[in-house]
């Protein structure tokens, strides 16, 4: 098994997904199967190969520096689960 229970818990923590105790074994097995399967890439020697940098050869798009002065606060707060005045609100963070 490529991915043991501790690894599963570690990546779930990184991804901020809560995994219940009774699910850990299942997840570990599924993830291991997938990782085992993608291991077949090791058959390819890529020592001299550069990773793909551009999918399609097109020039990059840039924007100018002119600010748009529109106030979008209504738009961005519209769907917020919790807000007060013009703020998003989350459970207290301790630094």
């Amino acid at each position: 098994m490529k991915i043991d229970k501790n690894t599963t818990l570690k990546i779930a923590r990184l991804a901020r997904i809560k995994i219940n105790n009774n699910e850990i074994a299942d997840y570990s097995k599924q993830l291991s199967n997938i990782i085992d399967w993608v291991q077949q890439l090791n058959e390819v020697n890529t020592d001299q190969i550069e990773p793909l940098k551009k999918i399609v050869e097109i020039p990059a798009t840039f924007k100018g520096d002119e600010p748009e002065l529109k106030d979008y606060s209504q738009d961005i707060l519209e769907n917020a689960p919790e807000k007060i005045e013009n703020y998003f609100v989350v459970p207290k963070v301790v630094e």
């Binding site: 961005i76 007060i84 013009n86 703020y87 998003f88 609100v89 989350v90 459970p91 207290k92 963070v93 301790v94 630094e95």
Partner: peptide, 12 residues
């Protein structure tokens, strides 16, 4: 962090 005892306010 200092606007509310149980909440953090976010300004983007």
């Amino acid at each position: 962090h200092d606007q509310h005892p149980e909440k953090t306010y976010v300004d983007l």
